[in-house]
Every structure is written in C-alpha cells, then in structure tokens.
Design a protein around this nucleic acid. Structure first.
Lengths: 341, 341
DNA sequence: AGGACGAGAGTAACCGGTTCCCCACCCCCG
DNA sequence: CGGGGGTGGGGAACCGGTTACTCTCGTCCT
C-alpha cells in the first residue's frame, strides 16, 4: 500500500484516524463509528467520553473512507460546458438548494468547452459522486449514447436522448421561437436575421428547425453565423446591417446584448430601425436600454426538476417523466413596428 | 461493513471491481493494478490480456478506493460565496486551467452566502480533495483563523490571514481606489458618493478605509448602503440623486451598471451630469453606454497565482509569498469633468 | 554444473471507515 | 437458583484499490 511507513505529508504528526480515537478512549473502532453515526446502542456516558476524546484530538471522519465503506458519497456533480454562462448560474443555484434539502451536496465541474476532456471529466466526476447532472450541448449524440450507461444515475439538461432511458429537463425552444416569430410578424416584420449559435450545438439546431417551421414561408430568414457570447453578438451586428433586415432574433440574450450595444455604437436606433429579441431572459435583460424583448425561460425550475429526477433514480429507480419547460414571451422595449421602408 | 450481501443498487449485476478483472483474466489483483498504473514490470502480452479483459468487462478503477489507498485524490476544490458573480468565473477559469497542467481537476462548491453552511462545506470539500482555494469574504476573521488549520493545504483569495501561515492572492484595493479618486479629483469632482458593498464584507471594509485615506479631506464622500448586484445599484441610484454629488464610486462594476441603467431611465446624463466608476473591469464594462471607467483587476492572474501557491504547499511545503495584484485604471466614457454648476 | 542475478508475478498488509455476528453481562422471572 | 431475554460493546470481514516483500523461474557467468 501507499505510505506504509508512518511518514505522512510533511509536518503532520500521527494521523488522527478512528483507530487513534478508539485507542485513546480505550474502546473499539466499532464503538467510535457508532457514536459518530448516532447509533443509539452506545451507553450515553461512553458516547460522551468518545466525543470528548475525538474533540480533543481534533478528529473528523474521512469522507473518502466513509464513501468507500458505505458505497455512497452524499454528493452529486453537475458538469457544465462553461461556468461563465449566466444561464447555468440559475440552474446551479436551484440544484444546490434542491439537493441540500435531502442532505446532498453539489459539486460543479467545468469542461471549458473541451469535447475530449468533457467525456473523461464526466466519467470521473460521476464516479466520485452518487449521481450526475450533465449539460453537454456539443457532445455528439453517438458519443453521449455510449457514455450514458457509465454515468448512471444520470439526468440531462437541455438535451434529450431518446430510447436511452435517461431522464431530461429541457426547454421548449419550439414554443419560444414560435412566440417570438409571431410577435415580430404581428409587428409587420417580413425579413429578419437569425444570429446563430455554434452549429455543433444541439440547441442551435433545434432553434433553426423551429424557426423554419414557425415562419412557414411568411417571413424571410437570413441566418448569420455568430456564437454564444456578448462579444460574438457585438461582432455580428456589423453583418446584420448589411442584410437589410428589420428585426433580429439572437441565439440568446447575451448575443442580443452584444448586437444591441454595437448597433447603438453605430447609431442605429432600436427598435425604430431594427427590432431585437433574445432568448433566456437573464436578469440583465430588463435593464438594457431599451429593455430586451425575449423568450423568458423559467430557469429556476431546471435545477429542482433535475434533482427530483436524479433523486428518483438514486432511490427506487422508477424514472420520472421528462420535464419540458415552456418559455413565456416577454415583450419589452427592444421590439416595435417594422419601419415602413 | 455495508452491503455485505451481494445486493447492490437495483439493476446492477456483479460489481466490476479489480478483483473481478483479476479473476477473469486469471491473474492477481496486484497485476491488474500494475497494468492500470503503467508499471513496466508486467510482461507486455500479459498486460495486453488484462487490458482486453478489463475492456470487455467495462472495468474502470474506483476513484474513491484509489484515493483512500493513495492518500491523494488528484482533485482540488474551490469554495465561492456566489457562483453568479462574474468575478469568480475568471478566477475559476484560470484555476481550472492551471491545475489541469499538473493533472489536477477542480471542483467548485457554492456556499450561497450561507455563513454557517460555509464552514462545514469548506471542511467537507477539503477532506474530499487534496487542497482548497477559499474565497469567504464574509466569514469573521476569528472563525476563519480557527478553521484554517483544518483546511490546509489552503490558499485564500481576496483576503489575508496574518500570522497564520496561509498564502493568499489578493487585489490591491488601496491602489485601485487611490487611482479612481485621483482620476475623479483631477476632473474637478469634490463631492462623490460611494455605493457600499455589504458591510460584513472584508473587501468593502478595505475599500472604505482606502477611500478615506485617498481623499485625505480634499473630497467629500457620501457613503450609501447598497450591495453587490446590478439590482442593488439600480435601486441605489435613486438615493444618489438626492445627495447632490457629481460622481459615484460603485462597490463593483455590477453595481455601477445598475446605477448607470437607473440614471439613464431617470434622464440623468452620464457623464455630463454625473460621472460613474466601477471596480473589476468585468467583460461587459467596455460595452455599456457609456463604457465604464473602472479599476481593471487582472482577474485572470488570480487562478494561476492561487494554484502555484497551493501546488507549493502540496509538495515540499515551502510556502510562496503572497500575491497582491494591482488594478490598473481604465478610463472610458462614464467619467468626465465635474459640471460647473 | 552450480550459483548469482534479475525479471515477472503472487501474497498479504494497509488506507480509514462500517456493520454483521457473537459474546459477556445484567436483570427479571418462574 | 437456574435459565431466558435484552443490552452494550468487541472482533473481524469487507469496501476497492496500492505496493512492499517474497518467491519462482530462466539466464548467464565462471
């Protein structure tokens, strides 16, 4: 084994283990364990003595050893592609809170958009925990499908995996896109730009398809490559004005802000000359000038929804149905009637 | 022990452990272990057979068991008070990347600003990992001081703990504040508001003291209770205009944005009527209208700095000196000459 | 041919806990 | 006074790995 000699990390003296406490208190390790687990079959005064000894030595049970013995850790993990994305913060908050209601802790890992790393990280994170919530919008379906069995209990966020028996929590992009398009069409817009997310991204693909269905030929759509961030939107705005559109649907709010900001710099008036809509309704959205019309995603429901599904899997294993959250159209100042040419 | 019967989590068959692989391949567990750790003292063709057997069974070593045996996990943790704060994202990114250079993974825990929870969470997170980076601006020094020994190897972010032998990475708020004040004074401002962060927060206390030193009686400062978020700044702006000031120093950029946005709504022109400065230089700052003058914190250096200190502690134990990062004044459009009224 | 040596693989102790099983003891009752 | 039953606590197996030590060969050298 490792460290067979007593030599620990430099500086530390004798390691304070359950064995040391037991020896010092003159009881067996079993008894110490019982005390720390609140097992009532220990005489109260003995328990007190053990607790005192432990406190004196500064003993605390090793979570690692405990996890190994118990076969459970009391921890779940969530893997996200980019912690910087405000969307995840809402999810993580909800998940942290929901899990802590059942005494579980949440640890977060960030794959930093690295696809190869992501798979390895997911497996590792999962094996250190009791369950995993995975948000991997770029991972090829193929790859995800073969990974899924190793990650169980697993819940997916923002993506589904049909016939693989993996519960998921998703956003109904179709509904959101449909409402946005209807709103713009109602305002007289007939030629709009779509600032696309990464084309490897599942949710971008879904938005694109939904867009085609929603316009149904009544509105012309110009698709422009863009991205996911403020900077991407900022850069894309220059292309937008080349394309003679009266409205812009951004991949998400961040992109919409970027575009908004750039148009402002260019002296283009929003919504008088161009209308802009986002997607998500992140907290900032109501504060931009003008405030952003967007499809408001009930992001606070994602975390709890994911937790309840994970919890079901970790216990009786009866899987709950998928949760599909519907965005609500939030009309603010960034949209207005199409200019009359 | 737990689960002495063969009954695992429902559904799973025989658990795929190193023992099963060994038995199936007809070798000892030691040999399997050697193969998976790249120990060259295994004959190549035997190693190949073991690998094949393992692959067939879908075996992967248990990180928990491994951690126990090795006495190290290959993981570090960072505990933050609020994942939603954009400042941390830069830190986490840098830390993730720096740690991965040495083959370490980063897990993130969020204390959600809960002080009691925070201490427990820190200890637990630490004991599941090999080291901890802690950002706990609200924790009383007293409490932190008694906690520190249990958290070692430990690195603090954004706060120091004198004489406790805990390395830290901090921002030199004094320099930042001094530069901001000098800038505003140079523009003729003589009465400015400070939108304060939480008064329990260390970094707010430091800012307040630095402010007193910097103005040195030459400028009047009105301190207004505010907070840390966009919404806080938005709400505080209403009080600002009651106090007849010509400039505002916000606790951070987020607060500055909030104030900026609200002033815009109220028809107050920035910087013509009021100048505003933030602190941090988060990515958004250059895109607001007007762009935000701020003390630019080299946030990308925090993560690597913390890692190199943690790494030193985890190895030879020779502690590196504290790192104190100096903000740089970034003058943009939100500041201008004081109105001559 | 005999012995030294090294390579390769097995044995078993150990990491730090948990818990099943069993034993010793005490109390109470017939 | 002997036996049944309950209670408290110890012994030891086990979780799934790692590794020091040992043992068995085969090779090469003198």
């Amino acid at each position: 084994m490792g460290r067979r000699d007593g030599s620990r990390r430099s500086g530390a003296g004798v390691p304070v283990t359950i064995g040391l406490v037991a020896a010092t208190a003159g009881v067996s390790r079993a008894t110490v364990s019982r005390v720390f687990n609140g097992n009532p079959s220990v005489a109260p005064e003995l328990a007190e003595r053990v607790r005192a000894t432990a406190a004196e030595l500064g003993y605390a049970p090793s979570p690692v050893a405990r996890s190994l013995a118990l076969g459970r850790t009391g921890v779940i993990a969530m893997l996200v592609p980019d912690l910087g994305n405000p969307t995840f913060q809402g999810v993580l908050n909800g998940l942290t809170r929901a899990a802590s209601d059942q005494g579980y802790r949440l640890l977060v890992a960030d794959s930093q958009e690295d696809l190869d790393e992501e798979a390895v990280l997911a497996v590792e994170a999962r094996r250190r925990c009791d369950g995993l919530v995975l948000c991997a919008p770029r991972m090829p379906t193929e790859r995800l499908r073969e990974l899924a069995p190793k990650l169980r209990p697993l819940v997916l966020v923002n993506r589904e995996l049909p016939d693989a028996d993996v519960p998921s929590v998703t956003i109904d992009f179709e509904v959101g896109i449909r409402d946005l398009v209807a709103h713009l069409r109602g305002l007289g817009h007939r030629r709009i730009a779509y600032l696309a997310g990464p084309d490897t991204s599942m949710s971008n693909q879904i938005r694109v398809r939904a867009l085609q269905v929603a316009v149904a030929g009544t509105v012309e759509v110009v698709e422009l490559a863009c991205g996911v961030s403020f900077a991407d939107g900022h850069a894309a705005a220059d292309h937008v004005i080349d394309h003679d559109v009266t409205a812009v649907i951004a991949y998400n709010d961040l992109v919409a802000f970027g575009a908004l900001s750039r148009l402002h710099e260019l002296g283009v008036r929003v919504p008088a000359q161009i209308s802009i809509v986002g997607f998500d309704d992140i907290p900032f959205a109501r504060y931009t000038t003008p405030a952003l019309t967007t499809a408001s995603v009930p992001i606070g429901d994602v975390g709890p929804g994911a937790w309840s599904r994970l919890w079901a899997l970790m216990n009786d294993g009866a899987p709950e149905a998928d949760l599909r959250l519907r965005p609500r159209l939030e009309v603010r100042g960034s949209t207005g009637p199409a200019p009359t040419a």
